[in-house]
């Protein structure tokens, strides 16, 4: 039961984007389409899981004082691996994500989970936490990407083929930078509304 909770807290109650408000740079920059969102989410999932696992394995050997540089180097290594894999197998998405793939290394979610969870917990728990957080992050990116793509281009395209097409006027602003900030602002306000509903007003 507790294991299941470890896994699901990253997806719902501690969703990194919607509840912890972490890792926003890639969230906002790459979500111009559902496909980009999935690409970025899955790469972060890969890095999160492996860096969590690796840091948890060597946790007894890391000196307290220099733990942050060590953790960053481990994360950077996995980011290098995923960026090479993407460049080889998904060159299109890699080119579209651009500098945001190497920037996964400074994604606050990954370092936060390494330092606050993987450093203190056993390996299998850390892996579960990494996967849960990664899925939560991917879902958040998919939601934002989908909203922006539907409103901004009136269709959803995956790997070059249009899968959904809707008959309304395109709102260009949604796939431009302001659309990203507007979407996340409204989503956060919506979540807040459900959180404070039922609480007495001032």
């Amino acid at each position: 039961m507790k294991k299941l909770q470890l896994f699901t807290q990253g997806i719902f109650s501690k969703n990194p984007v919607f509840f912890l408000v972490l890792g926003l740079c890639p969230t906002l920059a790459v979500t111009t389409s559902l496909e980009n969102g999935i690409g970025m989410g899955l790469s972060a999932l890969f890095v999160l899981t492996f860096s969590n696992a690796f840091i948890s394995i060597i946790k007894g050997y890391i000196p307290e004082k220099i733990r942050i540089p060590i953790q960053i180097v481990i994360i950077a290594t996995f980011v290098t691996i995923i960026s090479m894999l993407m460049e080889a197998y998904f060159p299109d998405i890699f080119r579209r994500l651009g500098i945001y793939v190497p920037l996964i290394v400074v994604n606050c979610i990954i370092l936060a989970r390494a330092d606050s969870f993987a450093r203190k917990n056993p390996v299998n728990d850390s892996i579960l936490d990494g996967i849960g957080m990664g899925i939560g992050f991917t879902l958040a990116l998919m939601v934002i990407g989908m909203i922006r793509e539907i409103l901004g281009t009136a269709q959803i395209a995956i790997l070059g083929s249009t899968i959904i097409s809707l008959p309304f006027e395109k709102m260009m602003i949604m796939i431009l930078p302001p659309g990203a900030l507007l979407t996340i602002g409204l989503i956060l306000a919506g979540i807040n509304y459900f959180k404070i509903r039922g609480e007495p007003g001032e």
């Binding site: 408000v21 507007l182 602002g185 306000a189 807040n192």
Partner: peptide
């Protein structure tokens, strides 16, 4: 408005 207080309104401002 209460749901917008804090981070949410900051994002909407940033959007403008």
């Amino acid at each position: 408005p209460r749901p917008f207080r804090g981070v949410a309104i900051a994002f909407i401002t940033a959007s403008m």
